[in-house]
Design a protein around this nucleic acid. Structure first.
Lengths: 213, 213
DNA sequence: GTCTATATCTCGATAGAC
DNA sequence: GTCTATCGAGATATAGAC
């Protein structure tokens, strides 16, 4: 999009109204400032003025890009989901692939404390029904659980997972363990959440898998 | 002036200054109002005025019992810990007693959504270092983990738990699972967190216990 | 597109009457 | 012990200049 200069593009540059690209840059900067602040303070405790100051613009300037606080939150959540997404299940997947992928995601997230902190803050606040991120949270859990359950069912069809495996419980426990470990890791970086998760997945394979270890 | 009621003391009773007992009642009422509001909205989003209104007094009246917002939070946390406490390990404990007790606690908490909601809100907010409840949260995890680890070590000494059991990891995973299941249960009351936890404890006993199932 | 300025609220906390 | 009154600070949001 935006194929460079339309035509002559004279010396409008210095102080003329900034166009396209500049706007995107400021928006991006504001978004990252918001992520940082919401992660550390929570949504309720973060003000538009703080975000604007961190982004180097005025509150009104911020309001131009994000007309309201919930709108800013929506953009933050959208950005988060793009960075930390569940890999989709595919037909030819290796057995337990999604579970292994989650272990990898956990290891990757140990290099991105900001993202984990944002998630923990959001989840804690959004459990209440009327929170602006409540719908996001419901959807997040539903999508994650359905993805894991679908993967397990596929593995059952190909015979790599025992037919009597309690797939819902396995999926729910995996998600719960991930969430809980993230909290503990945030409080104590010595906690190796990827390793703990990997051990759990190994236990699952031993208990419900059909392939030899 | 106003020598009138100095000694006659007519119907002073009805509206005279309330004493002792009354104060405790109002304090209790304020405390429960605060718990309810903080549980549903979080600490940052809850105002002293809201708590006062819910308790049926004025903000200044509330300030008399709790001189500041952090002071009110402290009282809330203290009350919470009294209701939802880790049973202490004792010398003659049955094997895995603390783990069974936690399953029972989870089942009990499924009748006390308020308490679980308060915990989830607090944990989400207090991960940040400068939150007024951060110290509480660190202590909460430390005490819980040490208690579980101590119980496992005692069971190892009595021979009911295998000597090569990774006690730290078992304790951390148990806590993580509890925390994560509480979130999922709050979002979907169909989730039976006590049952899921009980299954996990059974898995632990099978994997690391020495007693026959 | 960003700014200044302002409108309208609500916050936490304090002082003093009764 | 609870109230009214008030303070100063900071919130979201809008209007209009440049």
């Amino acid at each position: 999009m935006s194929t460079a200069a339309q035509d002559a593009r004279p010396a409008r540059r210095g102080r003329g109204r900034p166009r396209g690209q500049d706007s995107a840059v400021v928006r991006e900067r504001s978004l990252h400032a918001a992520i940082d602040l919401i992660a550390h303070q929570g949504y309720a405790a973060t003000s538009m003025a703080q975000v604007a100051a961190a982004a180097g613009i005025s509150p009104s300037g911020l309001a131009h890009h994000f007309p309201s606080k919930p709108a800013l939150l929506g953009a933050v959540l959208e950005h988060r989901d793009r960075l930390d997404h569940m890999p989709p299940a595919a037909e030819g997947d290796a057995p337990w692939r999604l579970f292994d992928a989650l272990v990898g995601l956990a290891r990757q997230n140990m290099e991105r404390a900001e993202l984990v902190l944002l998630y923990a803050s959001m989840v804690g606040e959004a459990v209440t029904e009327d929170h602006p991120a409540h719908e996001w949270m419901l959807s997040h859990y539903a999508v994650t659980a359905e993805s894991l359950i679908g993967g397990l069912r596929a593995d059952q069809r190909t015979g790599h997972v025992r037919a009597d495996a309690p797939v819902e419980r396995i999926a729910r426990s995996m998600i719960a363990l991930m969430d809980g470990l993230q909290l503990q890791w945030l409080l104590d970086p010595e906690v190796d959440m990827a390793a703990a998760l990997a051990e759990h997945v190994e236990d699952l394979k031993r208990a419900w898998g059909t392939d030899p270890a």
